[in-house]
């Protein structure tokens, strides 16, 4: 059903901390692992052992280099998966109704049995969050692990996205961004979480936390050290006094 719900009961999504992401790709691979074995068709790979290997991934980690006005360039690792936009163009363009946004939690999903693999939704997504699986010919995308987060076969503590559970640095947070009291909403508030390409008007649910200021940009907290002595003799003098005190 490709008309977007006027309102969703929750806005489940991810908050990704660019200050903490070390670019280890753990989230990329655990996502691949979980979603190959679970929701819908397997995420296939072409030429997996040959020239130009390429496969379907629902989450990929980019790396960027940013040059501030002053100081050294910075390297920023940048994970990206579906942002589960409130105003999701990928849904409305879908001719078959395969693409839809869930009313319960705002998760954007593809109903693979309805998908004709026209690829239009991937075109409509500004972020490159949809990939057409080359074997199944259906559109794959981040499901926000809809088959984990409510899964009664998993222990309570594991009812979170595979990528969040696995992230060694704790740079990925999952929750309801509709609820100001939630941990994720708090993080967004405190750390100034932002949207990707706001000008596209997609109103992403996922938010990104900016890297904290780095290098010389921080002014020095500690007072510079005062010498107690210039040369060894003077130092021993000081030492004697200092030792008396302890």
């Amino acid at each position: 059903m490709t008309t977007l719900p006027t309102h969703t009961e929750k806005k489940l999504g991810l908050v990704i901390d660019l200050d903490t992401c070390v670019g280890c790709h753990a989230c990329v691979v655990s996502c691949k692992g979980w979603n190959t074995e679970n929701y819908g068709a397997a995420l296939s790979d072409q030429n997996p052992y040959g020239k130009d290997p390429s496969g379907t991934f629902l989450n990929r980690v980019h790396s960027y280099e940013v040059q501030p006005e002053t100081g050294a360039a910075q390297t920023i690792h940048f994970p990206k998966s579906c942002l589960h936009c409130e105003d999701a163009p990928c849904v409305t363009v879908c001719p078959t109704g395969a693409s839809y946004k869930r009313v319960e939690d705002g998760i954007v999903l593809v109903n693979e049995s309805d998908c004709i693999g026209c690829g239009l939704c991937a075109w409509a997504c500004p972020y490159g969050a949809r990939e057409l699986d080359q074997v199944e010919g259906v559109m794959k995308k981040c499901t926000l692990c809809v088959d984990r987060i409510y899964n009664e076969n998993l222990p309570e503590e594991d009812r979170q996205p595979a990528c969040v559970r696995t992230c060694p640095a704790g740079a990925r947070h999952f929750g309801d961004l509709d609820d100001e009291t939630s941990e994720v909403s708090q993080l967004v508030k405190e750390r100034g979480g932002f949207d990707l390409m706001p000008e596209q008007g997609t109103k992403p649910v996922n938010k990104y936390l900016p890297p904290r200021p780095k290098d010389e940009q921080i002014d020095i907290l500690a007072p510079l050290l005062e010498p107690v002595a210039a040369e060894p003799q003077g130092f021993l003098g000081w030492l004697d006094k200092a030792l008396e005190k302890i």
């Binding site: 920023i76 640095a169 704790g170 890297p211």
Partner: peptide
């Protein structure tokens, strides 16, 4: 990585001494 995550969450300071700024040194505050 888990340790750096904890340190970062507390906003404590990380120094990366390395000719190359990638990975851990990319998230280092200095």
């Amino acid at each position: 990585k888990m340790g750096l995550g904890k340190v970062k969450a507390r906003g404590a300071k990380v120094y990366g001494v390395n000719p190359i700024r990638s990975g851990y040194n990319a998230v280092a505050d200095e």
